[in-house]
Structure formats: structure tokens, C-alpha cells
Design a binder for these strands. Sequence first.
DNA 1: TTGTATGCGTTATCAC
DNA 2: GTGATAACGCATACAA
Lengths: 344, 344
Amino acid sequence: MREHKPDKSEISIVDIAEALNVSAATVSRALNDNPRISEATRKRVKDKAEELGYRHNSMASSLRNKRSNIIGMIVPRISMYFHAIFITALQNRLQEEGYSLMVCQSNDSESIEQKLAATLYSSRVDALVVSLALYTEDYKHFDGFTKQGIPLIFYDRVPTKTYAAHIIKGDDYRGGLLAGNHLIETGCSKIAYISGPLSCSIYKERTEGFQHALDKAKIKLERKWCFYQELTAENAWNSLRQIFVGKERPDGIFASNDTTALAAVEFAREQGIKIPDELKIVGYSNDPRASIISPPITTIDQHPVEMANRVAQKLLNLLKDKSLRAINDTREIVPVTLVRRMTT
Amino acid sequence: MREHKPDKSEISIVDIAEALNVSAATVSRALNDNPRISEATRKRVKDKAEELGYRHNSMASSLRNKRSNIIGMIVPRISMYFHAIFITALQNRLQEEGYSLMVCQSNDSESIEQKLAATLYSSRVDALVVSLALYTEDYKHFDGFTKQGIPLIFYDRVPTKTYAAHIIKGDDYRGGLLAGNHLIETGCSKIAYISGPLSCSIYKERTEGFQHALDKAKIKLERKWCFYQELTAENAWNSLRQIFVGKERPDGIFASNDTTALAAVEFAREQGIKIPDELKIVGYSNDPRASIISPPITTIDQHPVEMANRVAQKLLNLLKDKSLRAINDTREIVPVTLVRRMTT
DNA sequence: TTGTATGCGTTATCAC
DNA sequence: GTGATAACGCATACAA
């Protein structure tokens, strides 16, 4: 028996039903625009709902429907330009379809990534979109999603080993190749390379493409001029100091992100090294900062919006048609573009 | 009667209970580390849960508890440096306490902001954190939160009119004052001003502080050198062209964000105007781009991390102690700092 | 320390 | 076109 609760402020469909002398089922149907309900009742219900200040309870609804309409997302950091743009584009698209994005940051820590995966897993997200942390080489923490048939999509930084999931990534091999070819074509022969760790797919593939370009031109990549590390400005400066310590100096640098390319330009400025005459630089990502510094930096554009659109499309297909989930290891490659500026 | 479902893959506490010959209540308690349960049972339950691949269902839990452990958030754009840093700091703190952040972007559109507020409202977020869109001057879409006793906190871009909500904001008045004083002290007397629209609290207050500085020095702000508009690079260029169209030129510019200050530096470079000799520039926000351009830009730091920490603290207090919700119109001001660089 | 019973708010199924 | 009912999974009050 329902007791009288004078302070009961939350209105449920039952309250509306009572007020209108109809059943809760009818109210639910009317509110959901179910076609089997008369126009008149629909209106009566909606008006009364408005009047009573009813708000839909998506927890109850989700529990009943077994879907939360929430898409989980794990990214390294939202402050990275590429990811910020990607997230925005994805969010705009998903919002149109009634989904919300729950964006979490791993801060490039594998252990945080694991915790977030667990949390999102029990939060019952309808799908998970991930760009991996820098050193994640084991993907067990995502197994549950696939086992439960929850769509799992990796973008940009994707598994380097075989793993049952959808993958949508940039053409990093080509990016590395373009960068290498471009440096060579503009006359470089002694090239330094500052890369991210090879545990991370994007750096691994950029390295392969870059290496291929050098091999073709029979240019050797000097061991002492190669770095594989987290691409912070500070690390970049340390590497640059090491690279320019001796008499023999490179005439080109491929930096695997723009933060590092930026540091290289600043380093050269400090050292009085002329760009592009004495030193050419190519970065990666087309971060806005790359076009602001003097000289503006030649870089590789990854087309984050297009990548987001492809992820959105894949996601929506998977969400709408469960039968598509039988296949869970598709792979798409998004083209990259070299943007030439004044450092080459 | 429970039917046999061969493909039933989701394990509930009932399944664990049956497997262990205990009640569901016991399982629930064991899983939640309820002290009134024996160590032995707790372990048995947890082991079995692990074995069966049980995952907690937060929808059911939320429905029952009437709390979602989700904090809603509406920001203009996550690609703005200030907001990206703020969000990250807030998220890190809230995660420690078991809350998730649902970050939504208004894209500076009031109508999107309204929709997001409605969605988050029926998503049953436990609290809402908002930085307003550029032209939002009516706050009705947030009324529901306060009515339901859901903590509502505005940060940075806050209501300009009296509104029952918690406010944590930067000292924009002081920021404007500092910028004005600094330009005057470094010798400017003919000052141009490119501001955001005055519908937005931050620009309104920066304008007041700036105006106060000029008044004190008996410097008049020329009508034709004042702009109040969305602070995009494109708008900035248009304004700059208008400002520098005639013979009489300003010797100082206060740009109310760094995007605009950046444009001013580039404009000056294009026009051959010497900075800081012929023209001094002060920006706002301490965006990383401001320190990268040549010459690096003098700007105002808003201390996003400190602001986020204060919001987190306020939020957690409100969440933990419902009695605090009696007061819903507190106000905190976070100090700002002038960062002097080479444009002044 | 554990079990029983109940309800959170919604919606699908079946009946009329 | 509408109603009655059950069930989603969990956690609490109350009993034992």
C-alpha cells in the first residue's frame, strides 16, 4: 500500500496515470509516442506530465531495456588537439542519434586505462571507443566487452597485436613514408628521428614507413640520432641536445608529433641553426601550434573529423543492427596528408 | 518461474546466490563489503563472482539507490585550453571518489545547451557543472536541478544576473584591471579593445576592470577601437583591419582572449608594425600558443587547475552532506596573474 | 551473521 | 486503444 508522502517531489508515470485515471502502461506508451495510442490520450498524458513536472527516469528505463544509450570512451588526454577534435566530431554525431558520450582519460597510464575499462564495463555502456595509452600492449581489460557482444572500436592508437575488435586508424605507415620522402626530396641526407615508444601502434608504423623511405634512398638512420620515448617537450629538448652535441650534425629531423617538432624549432632558434637551410623539420598531427610558430612547421594531417565520422558510422551500424556484431575485426585506414610549410 | 535460458550470459547476484546456496541479500552485502557479513562468506561470494564473470549492474544499483554517481558537465568547447585543463583536473579528482564525469559541449549554442541540460536532467546526474555558452542570458533550463535539490555549480562563465546556484569564477574584473594598468604603465595611451560579447560574464567583467584602469589614468576608450564579438581568429582580423585603417593608430591592444591576441601579433607582423615598440598587446588565458608565437604574448593566467580543485571540493561537500544544500548561492573568486612576455 | 520480502520506475507481453 | 502484470538487478528494513 502506497503511503502518503507529503514531500514526494519526484513524479513517476504512475502518478500521471493516477491523475488521469489511466494505466501506467498507457502513460508509458503515450510518452514514447507509441503509434497504438490515440492522439487524444497522448496529448492528455503529455500535458499532465508537463504540468506535474515529470522527468523521464533513464535508470529505470535502461534497466528495463538493457541499454544505457551511453557510449564509453577512453582517450589518452583530451588536451591533445587530435583527440579534442575527434571527440567533438564524434559527440556531435552521436548526440543526433540520442546517444551520450562518457569520455574518460587514461593520462597515458595503462593501469588507469584498466580501471576505466572496468568502470565503463559495469556502467553498462552500449559500446566502447578507445585510443590506447602509450605503453599498453596487453588488451585483456577489454575482453569483457567483446565477450558480452558490446561493440568495441579502437581508433588512432590501436592494438599492435591481433585482437578481436574494430579498428579505424590513420595511415601512419604512409605518414612516416611521406615525411621521409619529403625530407629526402628536399635534400636531406643526414636525418635524425624522434619517435614515440614502439609499443604504440602509431609510432611503430610511422617508424616503418619512415624507415622504408630512407632504405629506398639508401640513407642510413644513425643509432645515436634515434629516440623512442614519450614525446614531451622536455624529452625532446634532451634528445636535441644529444643530437647536436658533436661536430657532425643532421640536416633533417622527423619528429613524430608536433610538440617535438615545436621543440626542435625552438632549439634551432636558440642554437642559431637556420631553418630550413641548415636543418629541415617535419612534425606530425597538424596541431594548430605548428602553424603559429616561426617558421611554421611542415607536418602530417591526420584528418580527425573524417576519422570520427567513420567511427560514428561504424558505431551506429553496430548499435542498430546486432547481427553485424558477428564480425568484430574490421579495419579501416584513413588517409593522411603532408602539409608543407616553412621548415622544409 | 525462471525459465531455462541456455544463452543467458549475464550473471546477476541471484545466480551467485543460487550457486552458493545463500540469499541474494547476502551476496549483495558481501559484494559491497558490508561489515555485517562474515569474512568467510565474503570471500566465497567474491570468488564465485569472479569465477562466474559477474559484473555489477550500475543501472539497477542506481535505480535502487536513487543516485547515478555521474556528474554532468556542460562546457562551451573542450578544445579550448582553459576548459581542457579544467576538465582533466576535475575528472582526476572526482574519479578518486568514485564519480564519473559526463562532459557535454554546447559549442557555444544556447539551444544546444538547453537540450543538454534537459538530457542530463533526465539522465539523473548527481550534480551539474556548467560553463555557459556565449550568449546565454536566460537560465531557466537549469531551474529543474535546483528545484530537485541537485547541486548546480557554474564556473568561469557564470550567470550575469542573480541566480540561485554555486559560482566559482576567475577574478575577471581584476584581470581586466591588470591588463589595462599594465598597458598604461608600459606607456600606452591610445588603446584598442577586442572583447567577447557582454552577455558573457567573463567579458563583461574584464571590460569593467579594464575600463576602470583607463578611467583612473584618464584615458578614453575610442568607440571605433572597441569590439564586442565572438573571439575567433577571423573576427579578430576583421576588427584589426578596421582599427588600423586610418592614420591614427593605437599603441596598445587588450585582446580578451589569446586567439585574438595571436591574430593581433600576426596582423602586426604582416603590416610591419613593430611589437612592442609601436604596438603593445595583452591577451587573456595563458593559452600555450601565446608562449609559442614570436614574440611571445603577455597574457593573464586564470589558474584552471586551482579553479577545478575548488569546484571539486565544493561538489564533494555538497554530494556528501545533503544538509549543505540548504544554501545554494555561494560564490568564490579565483585569483588571476599577469604573465609578462615580449609583447609589452 | 544471514534470510525474507519488497520496491525503485519503466516497459514488454499478453489479454480484452 | 487500453489495462493488468511481471520482470529488469539490486539493496534495504525487518525478522530470525
